[in-house]
């Protein structure tokens, strides 16, 4: 049964691949993902895979910014994509996809934590929670006391700020133009909320050094 249905999807997809250019090709940012979403709604499963491939890091960083450990964050990434698969026809504003993903991830992260199965981010949590196949970056990469203090300060920020600053990092990159658009973050501009988060980070960072 499994293979029959999957073969069905593939057959449809192959036919489309052979006969036409994908509607999202050549587009980027929000336009690209909106075109993918419309294609998924029309039955093209390969468009869904494009969204998963390109926007999973966004979902990951929102989950991490909301206090989930790395393992729980990955669970939430998959949960959010499955939720999108299930509700895909209810999204009537394809251009709002990135916003939908952010809100859904935030809600799911909160739900996980209310259940008590998520763990609050701690500075040594990374080393403890990383699967053994993952490189353990903590000791290799922290370049000194300043890095350690900044990273600790970052994790003392409110979740809202941690999420916003992680999204700011993503939004600064060309491939995440959709994030910048979803957050109304034109490149190089610092909105008032972000400004407050950066100031809070600076205060925590400097406070930690005792200066």
């Amino acid at each position: 049964m499994n293979s029959t249905h999957e073969a069905g999807w593939e057959a449809v997809t192959e036919l489309q691949t052979a006969s036409m250019t994908k509607p999202w090709e050549g587009l980027d940012g929000r336009d690209r993902h909106a075109a993918c979403l419309v294609a998924v709604q029309a039955g093209d499963r390969s468009a869904f895979d494009v969204l998963v491939a390109e926007l999973s890091p966004l979902v990951w960083h929102v989950a991490r910014g909301n206090g989930l450990d790395r393992t729980s964050a990955e669970d939430v990434v998959q949960t959010v994509w499955l939720a999108l698969l299930r509700h895909v026809n209810r999204l009537t504003e394809p251009r709002a996809l990135a916003g939908w993903l952010i809100v859904t991830t935030r809600r799911e992260a909160n739900r996980v934590q209310q259940r008590g199965s998520g763990q609050v981010e701690l500075s040594n949590e990374i080393a403890e929670q990383l699967p053994t196949t993952d490189p353990s970056p903590e000791h290799e990469v922290l370049r000194g006391e300043r890095d350690t203090q900044l990273w600790a300060a970052f994790h003392q920020l409110t979740r809202r700020c941690q999420e916003l600053l992680r999204l700011t990092v993503l939004a600064g990159r060309a491939e995440y133009r959709a994030v910048a658009e979803a957050l109304h973050m034109p490149h190089g501009s610092i909105g008032p909320t972000r400004g407050r988060c950066i100031n809070a980070l600076r205060a925590l960072y400097h406070g930690d050094s005792g200066s």
Binding site: D49, V52, A53, S56, P57, W60, H61, R64, R70, E74, V77, Q78, W81, I126, P131, T133, D134, P137, E138, V141, L142, D147, L150, W151, F154, L165, R166, T168, V169, G172, I198, L201, R202, Y205
Partner: peptide, 24 residues
């Protein structure tokens, strides 16, 4: 300050290898 945060996020907390493959 943001460019330092960006570097730390990239280096200390990148999405796990295989995240996308497992999600797919």
């Amino acid at each position: 300050l943001m460019s330092e945060v960006a570097r730390l996020v990239d280096e200390l907390d990148p999405p796990p290898p295989g995240l996308v493959g497992r999600a797919l």
